[in-house]
């Protein structure tokens, strides 16, 4: 094999691996969420299909695939069909820039466990996370239903209020690492993860990503208590499934990003790097599920209040403090 073919093969293999692992993980995250929520509520959760209910995701998939794919007659056809993909694809695309393990040596060459080591990896993530909200907005708009539209508007408003604090909370990371490249950010945390220097930025980022993946307490675009199912009220079958899976891919991806930015990525003692990365990412997933079992939904204006009047100024102050600290530590 010529080096070029080998390169392409390795890349394709990595992409296939990511697709397989992330999609399977997303399906099992749904299952884990149902089980965990059940335990929190003193129930048992789905335990019928297969041993311990482990085949439940498969049963769900079959159900979703065989359900009728209904489109409301007044809906905007193309946007309606496009929106679920626009919600799910950016989520999984973001995974391309996440380094999920230490570089390995394959066929005598160094292979980074990362699909694309972009030098603007962080910006790439920010851009994609903004695109993902188009799925919500267009899905709600195209459905031509009041609940879906309300959900979509809420989604947009939510985007504006948390995106800012999310971006600002990542600035200190970039200042510390001196690079937007995700592998550099991980490398800069080889000895001490950034959460030690930046607990505040980590907290802000955590709140922001909870809002980003529309989890309770920030699930106001969905808000099944008020808006039926928010932006995906009119969706059924696998299109609804795509929204659903997209949400869980988002949890995994954002957990992975939080790991990369603040918890030292795949760095960790004893265990292999890949295991460290997976463990940290799943810990975030667990935390989100746990939050869902605990907290009530915020009101619409409360999220705005939190984002604009609290998190954003705090993140700005944090940036100033970081700059000040960096200057004192290494005066130029």
């Amino acid at each position: 094999m010529s080096p070029i073919t080998l390169d392409i093969t390795i890349h394709l293999a990595k992409i296939a691996l990511i697709f397989f692992v992330v999609l399977t993980l997303a399906a099992y995250l749904v299952f884990a969420e149902r089980r965990l929520l059940a335990w929190i509520q003193d129930r048992k959760g789905p335990n019928r299909v297969g041993p311990f209910g482990l085949l439940q995701p498969l049963a769900d998939l079959i159900k979703l695939l065989t359900k009728e794919d209904f489109r409301p007659p007044q809906a905007d056809k193309w946007l309606f069909y496009l929106a679920p993909a626009m919600a799910a694809i950016p989520a999984i695309l973001t995974f391309a820039v996440i380094p999920f393990g230490a570089p390995v040596t394959l066929f005598g060459r160094e292979v980074p466990l990362q699909v694309a080591d972009l030098n603007v990896g962080l910006l790439f993530f920010m851009a994609l996370s903004s695109i993902a909200v188009y799925g919500v907005a267009l899905g709600g708009w195209a459905s031509n239903s009041k609940y879906a539209l309300l959900g979509a508007i809420r989604g947009l408003a939510q985007l504006i209020s948390y995106e800012l604090s999310m971006g600002l909370s990542l600035v200190p990371t970039v200042m510390l690492a001196g690079s937007l490249r995700l592998s550099d950010i991980v490398a800069a945390q080889a000895s001490v993860p950034f959460i030690v220097y930046q607990p505040l930025a980590f907290a802000i980022f955590l709140v922001s990503i909870a809002a980003e993946c529309k989890r309770i307490p920030f699930d106001i675009p969905e808000a099944e208590g008020e808006l039926v199912a928010g932006f995906h009220t009119e969706y059924s079958g696998m299109r609804f499934g795509l929204f659903f899976v997209g949400e869980y891919i988002n949890i995994i991806v954002l957990g992975g990003l939080a790991t990369t930015f603040f918890l030292g990525g795949w760095h960790g003692p004893l265990l292999p790097p890949f295991v460290w990365f997976a463990a940290k990412t799943l810990a975030f997933a667990f935390f989100f599920i746990w939050m869902r079992g605990t907290l009530p939904r915020l009101r619409y204006d409360q999220l705005m209040h939190l984002g604009w009047k609290f998190l954003t100024p705090l993140a700005l102050l944090n940036i100033l403090a970081t700059g000040w600290w960096l200057m004192i530590r290494e005066p130029h």
Partner: peptide, 8 residues
């Protein structure tokens, strides 16, 4: 509550 016995 995660570790309570379910009432189911």
């Amino acid at each position: 509550h995660i570790f309570r016995r379910p009432v189911t």
